[in-house]
Amino acid sequence: MVIAESVIQVQDLRKIYRSGVLRRRTVNALEGVSLDVPSGQIYGLLGPNGAGKTTLIKVLLGIVRKTSGDARVLGHAAGEIAARRRVGYLPENHRIPRHLTGSTALEYYGCLSGLSVGEVRRRAPGLLGRVGLKGREHDRVSGYSKGMQQRLGLAQAMLHQPDLIILDEPTDGVDPVGRKQIREVLRSLADEGASIFLNSHLLQEIELICDRVAILSNGSVRRTGSVKELTAAIAESPMVFRIRADRTTAESCFEISTVSKVEDVGDGVLDVHAGLPEQHQVDSIIDVLRSRDVSLLSMNRRDLTLEEAFLQIVREETA
């Protein structure tokens, strides 16, 4: 198995969709995306609707043609057959032909991926068991629930033991138990050396399993890093003031617009969460608290949740 340093390298990638009879209407789906996905990691791709996440994945797989820029997958130009041979893909809202059963679907997609029928038959039982479809392999796909179809889709993406697995909303429609199962499968795949590129709306999902994350908005990458890096305390993080005061006094000390939350922690102690990005704002609050004889027990900036970090980044973008 050839392991590249980066499984995905994208440089200034642009995609313009054209439509209309004269193809004059244009939509800029990707506007200079640059990205580097290291191998052996679970890499998450986040972004609001219409950010260009699916387009980026489709460009990587050659399903959509790039307008300009460079995109390489496993060292090959994006879309090359050699690259696709080493990639497993689970598209969003995929549709597996309804006349197939679980096992014939794996046989079909396995052969499409270059495996022999014998090889597929050898691998299929274990794989179906791994994704939780054991005992349903001879049922028609038309009788599968959404979650079962997702599991089967995941199985076909893993079948040929690819170096890179690209998953677009893999847990869509899957129940919480199933999600946990899928997370475990992905983690074990990563442990086995596979790289996983994951696109999901479920921030919690990303937060739980991704080693690194890229946030895409309006067709360009806004931020990349580990989850920890993205959620680490920054100036924009809320300040948490632990004070001994009643709620009325406390509220009179802060500008109401800056307070995001007031928590009563007991014994007349309150935690006031306030957005104070500038140091002079923090200083003036301290002055106000002192002037009103409010005891300041502690003061610190809190880490963001991934959701907060994501929203903040997107909000910055909108602003």
Partner: peptide, 17 residues
């Protein structure tokens, strides 16, 4: 049916022309 979005994306991701 083959060229419906859900099916064609899956097929085109495979190493086929």
């Amino acid at each position: 049916r083959t060229f419906e979005p859900g099916e064609i994306a899956l097929l085109l991701s495979k190493p086929v022309h």
